[in-house]
Design a protein around this nucleic acid. Sequence first.
DNA 1: AATCTTCGTCGAAGCGTTTCGACGAAGCGG
DNA 2: CCGCTTCGTCGAAACGCTTCGACGAAGATT
Lengths: 352, 352
Amino acid sequence: MATMHDVARLARVSVSTVSYVLTGARPISQATRDKVLAAMAELDYQPNAMARGLASRRSRILGLLMPMDERGLGATETAFVTGAAAAASTAGYHLVLSPVGGGNLDDLRRLATQRMLDGVVLMEVQLADERVTVLQEAGVPLVLIGRTGDTSALSYVDIDFEQTVREAVAHLVGLGHRRIVYVNHSAATLATGYGPALRTRDAFVSAMTGHGLEPVMIAAEDSAAGGRAALAAAFAQAPELTAVLAMNETAIFGILGELTGRGLSVPDDVSVVSMVTSPQVAELATPALTAMTSPGSALGRIAIEALLRHLDGPGGPRHQQLLPCALEIRGSTAAPRRAALVTSEPSPTGGG
Amino acid sequence: MATMHDVARLARVSVSTVSYVLTGARPISQATRDKVLAAMAELDYQPNAMARGLASRRSRILGLLMPMDERGLGATETAFVTGAAAAASTAGYHLVLSPVGGGNLDDLRRLATQRMLDGVVLMEVQLADERVTVLQEAGVPLVLIGRTGDTSALSYVDIDFEQTVREAVAHLVGLGHRRIVYVNHSAATLATGYGPALRTRDAFVSAMTGHGLEPVMIAAEDSAAGGRAALAAAFAQAPELTAVLAMNETAIFGILGELTGRGLSVPDDVSVVSMVTSPQVAELATPALTAMTSPGSALGRIAIEALLRHLDGPGGPRHQQLLPCALEIRGSTAAPRRAALVTSEPSPTGGG
DNA sequence: AATCTTCGTCGAAGCGTTTCGACGAAGCGG
DNA sequence: CCGCTTCGTCGAAACGCTTCGACGAAGATT
């Protein structure tokens, strides 16, 4: 393995000159540069990452921290990752994914404090997230995908849940639906302060109210069975429902199964919209699901770019940005079949 | 940020003594050790990973290379990752996941050649995998999850596809099924030399022949539509089929949809077994799928342990191991309702 | 023509560890 | 009681790079 010394000797220049050719930190004449580059090529020289990191106090490694639970990584999260990896690679940084779960904060602290990571992007952020505290104490530059409760001092990119819900509801209302039920994540998830669940809940209430409609929300466990139960609960609360809005990729299959089980057809009897769902998952269902598609790789890319800006100019402004989801109409939404099921005015009793 | 120097000064010993306390490379008296540990605690000392890596020529970082396509990471692959991460952490190593896709071999070469990774575990290996060549040329210790065609010089852990298929077929035959169709990955995937697809194909032929039955295999695109098409093809080739064996998590939803569309009930008319499927995915379907569950995290753990052994004693023996899948019986398999079912067209009533 | 910049290059001092050789102080057998 | 290991510690030399100060050689400015 050739070192910078070897290159310098072969090119008949000093080590520092080789370094300057590599980093561009000082001007080098074209003639010298060519000599050095030729020597590097001949020796198949590759800089040693450790030595460079030690001397420059910059590892050129960025971390993407994502809790990996047993559920696996959905296509949505995967898109964040690939977007981030591409952006990092473009900037000459490595992106490493660290599956540090919620449990081992110590592992995280070690990683952060050993100066192995120049900066970190955090995924799946809770409203109150200890990892943020740990990283801030360690002085590691930080960008979130998602938001904590208090975002005043933080940089983040997140999905615009407000807009997403508003647009999904508008789509259904535009088709003629009046009685729409929102199937959210589980009550337990809501209780832990999972931002997306809380924000969509509030947005749903506000969107429905804005249309003069009554908002009905059901919390569903993250499982097919949970979806079935949620739909049963929905029919109990709103027997005349003609549309279901859901943000729960797992439960939605139970919802669809239960609809079929009740002899109801999608979309003729009941329309279904899935939120923050990847096209791949939407296509799994029959019929394919109309969905609000997440900005995907853009989210990851923007997070990395913001992080790199923080590295270059510390003390710069925070980056806070919300990205919209795009409505993609597939086969699961249509105008409600029977006007009989449609109540043109919000009914105060809520029962039919 | 405190350095070893600071610790040494505070403890009134030399830097090397501090280092020996940390690494255990030489004996240190209990009294000195205590002094040093106290100083480290007081200063909240954390060794600098870069400096350590440079001096010892060991980064204590292991790479897990997984191609991340847009499909996302299934629960099965996620289990590999968490198992590997846990094992690495136990041994005092960091595990970084690198989403280096098939495309950017250069990125991989850079990573390998910059001496940033002590060793690598490779996932989703093809029968002929260029990444293996690149890494071997770079001299990076290597363990595969999966197998290339020629495994003579390599260490690997893989699923025992032979056993998995044999057991799945035995389960169905034991229930009384005689006409079983295997839905494999796509023809294109088979053509690229994807090991699991080829090995299960051969194992299916051999298992069926062993029972005196005729093997029928259909290649399906990785999509719901592909599953539907595959099932239609299956009925065309074997109208009297009573069981479907599948190794295609995506297509299986299309298969189930198409069965329902033809008015056939699972498991009464047709039994379905999914291979190398995580419990989470199996539970998504209605009824929940009987499946051959992959060894999951054990695979990742074993791969890391083998890799660590290679690092400690280079020139040691290769590690080559196959792990079985476990049969988990859920709701999608039962004894065939009728001795021979003859349907080649979708029938609206489904024939009670 | 004298002085001030800028340019291109060099040598050397780090960066924070590990690791090697050395060296007293014990402990040992003979 | 003398040479011999073994033990515990030290100082110094790497490891391969970045970066700072310095310094001739031009070119620009008076």
